[in-house]
């Protein structure tokens, strides 16, 4: 697992709990050309943040979902 993957997972788990890994893996697999979440690099964070924001809004409040997306986006900076 890459350093970026670890950081993103840790951040996402704060909002989504232990199922965060399931959600993240699905986003990278279906929206980022089959990328494995384990191989995530900081350059992927902006794209991933967009999809995580959309997907997580189905499970948590909109403002929290945007907050999570912002945090993931910032990990790529």
């Amino acid at each position: 697992m890459s350093t970026t993957s670890d950081a993103v997972l840790e951040t996402a788990t704060e909002y989504l709990g232990p199922a965060a890994i399931t959600l993240l893996e699905r986003q990278t697999k279906f929206h980022m050309q089959g990328l494995s979440f384990q191989d995530l690099q900081s350059s992927h964070c902006t794209e991933l943040a967009k999809w995580v924001g959309i997907a997580s809004a189905m499970f948590i409040e909109q403002d929290k979902a945007e907050e999570l997306a912002d945090k993931i986006r910032n990990l790529g900076v």
């Binding site: 788990t13 989504l16 709990g17 199922a19 965060a20 399931t22 893996e25 699905r26 189905m58 499970f59």
Partner: peptide, 17 residues
């Protein structure tokens, strides 16, 4: 967080994984 995780795991899209 626990409820969110349950929702994710019980969601149709994620069940198919």
């Amino acid at each position: 967080r626990m409820v969110t995780s349950l929702k994710i795991l019980m969601h149709t899209d994620y069940k198919q994984e």
